[in-house]
Write a protein that binds this DNA or RNA. Structure first.
Lengths: 248, 248
DNA sequence: ACAAAAGTGTTTTTTATACACCCATGC
DNA sequence: GCATGGGTGTATAAAAAACACTTTTGT
């Protein structure tokens, strides 16, 4: 590889050479199953080395001419047919030795992972099983061992989800379009833990804000009084944009 | 470059080839000059192409065997001798075409920038001028045109600073070790804008929290009653860790 | 009829906001 | 002695937290 050696020499003789990178994108895709009140992550079974046969976050390497975000959308689209979708960058993990493909002391490529955080609606998200069908939603408490440092990435994504839930309306990206107020409340408690707030206070606080539209439609789930279905009204929410701490 | 072509072929014939990256680290280093109440960023004058002679954020390319964070600390240490220091990752900018060194349609290297956010104490930070001395603190309102997409990165860092100021004790990383309460207040107003809170309320809220230690020492700055010097007590702050929204 | 879930309301406590006023210093 | 910045206190409004109660359904 004469081209590479040459490039090194141009810079400076005393410095250690620059690292060459392949850049991967890994997605932490969350959803919730409102019926069973489970917070879910999308995992895929790896079909190649390294970590063949292990579960991992859906990821891909960035291709020529492709932006990071494009790559993130691409894997998403390969794994899932989703109508709605929220996506944002999470964090970049890039220490040496995070990928076993990096030969310890060689001058081969380093692998760097830019992680993205995504939210989709469970009911509208159709998983795309390739021939080997290694793809599944996992409840957060039952996540198996993951390839690479994906457990760490997932943990980081989970933290981000908890934070975002408190001060931005991301809940409505994961909930179905029509939801009951206890769906919403349950989502908050499963993500934030019990005793983040009393139901009745949570309820009145949110209703007072005025961006939850009552459709009037009632649904009955087993015993008990039927609940109203609500819809998130993005326009009515607009004035709260950029103002933090609306929810709790 | 036969090695590279071979690697491509192993994967799949239909896919576009993977991009090869050089990874850069760019630091947004903030400080405040308490005397003049200016929020400052550290800029360096580029000594090489591209953007030769333009101001830019201090950055470097990641070397073989070096982690991203190591690289971030390395540039910092090259530019500044700082006792205290706060550093965290900001965001990764990685679209194609963000760096003019990328030939538009070639298969050359892409340049990706992982940005870091740093805070140092102005008084304790000694700038290291290399032979050409192209390094300086710039007041945020007077930042000139910057190389690459550094203006965007800086803007992003500024946003992060504003957020962090509200819910974490980063202010004490930028202030000198001993500071008056109006130093603190001024810092908040210069970063967050006027009318974020009335001085007297700000004051009593913070003192009630109990992690500001009054040293008893007084300083007089021109006319007016001399002010007490305070010190941030990290231990007393500990219970507030992870609890957001302590300051406002 | 009664348990279960949804929804309403009231009381108490805490926190935010506004603002009036006193204190110590330089000139 | 008065302007200047530092520091204290109080009165009012608003929001958070606790909890008691009503309403509507399935069984």
């Amino acid at each position: 590889m004469p081209g590479r050696a040459q490039r090194k020499a141009t810079k400076s003789l005393s410095h250690p050479p620059l690292a060459d990178f392949k850049v991967g994108v890994d997605n932490v895709i969350f959803s919730v199953d409102t019926d069973q009140n489970r917070l879910l992550v999308l995992l895929v079974m790896r079909q190649e080395e390294p970590f063949f046969g292990q579960w991992s976050l859906p990821g891909t390497l960035v291709r020529h001419g492709e932006s990071l975000e494009d790559a993130a959308y691409r894997i998403l689209a390969e794994k899932i047919r989703a109508r709605n979708l929220y996506l944002e960058q999470l964090y970049t993990f890039g220490g040496p030795d995070r990928d076993p493909r990096e030969a310890p002391d060689s001058y081969g490529d380093r692998y760097l992972s830019v992680s993205y955080f995504a939210l989709v609606r469970y009911a509208e998200a159709e998983l795309i099983a390739d021939r080997v069908s290694g793809i599944a939603w996992y409840s957060l408490e039952q996540v198996p061992d993951l390839a690479f440092d994906h457990k760490q990435i997932l943990e980081y994504g989970h933290r981000r989800l908890r934070n975002k839930l408190e001060y931005s309306p991301v809940a409505f990206e994961v909930l179905p379009e029509l939801f009951t107020l206890s769906d919403l409340y349950q989502l908050y408690t499963t993500v934030l833990g019990e005793n983040f707030s009393d139901y009745s206070n949570f309820r009145s606080r949110l209703l007072k804000l005025g961006f939850l539209e009552d459709t009037g439609v009632k649904v009955s789930r087993g015993a008990g009084r039927p609940a109203s279905l609500y819809r998130f009204d993005a326009e009515a929410f607009a004035p709260y944009k950029d103002k933090p701490m609306v929810f709790i």
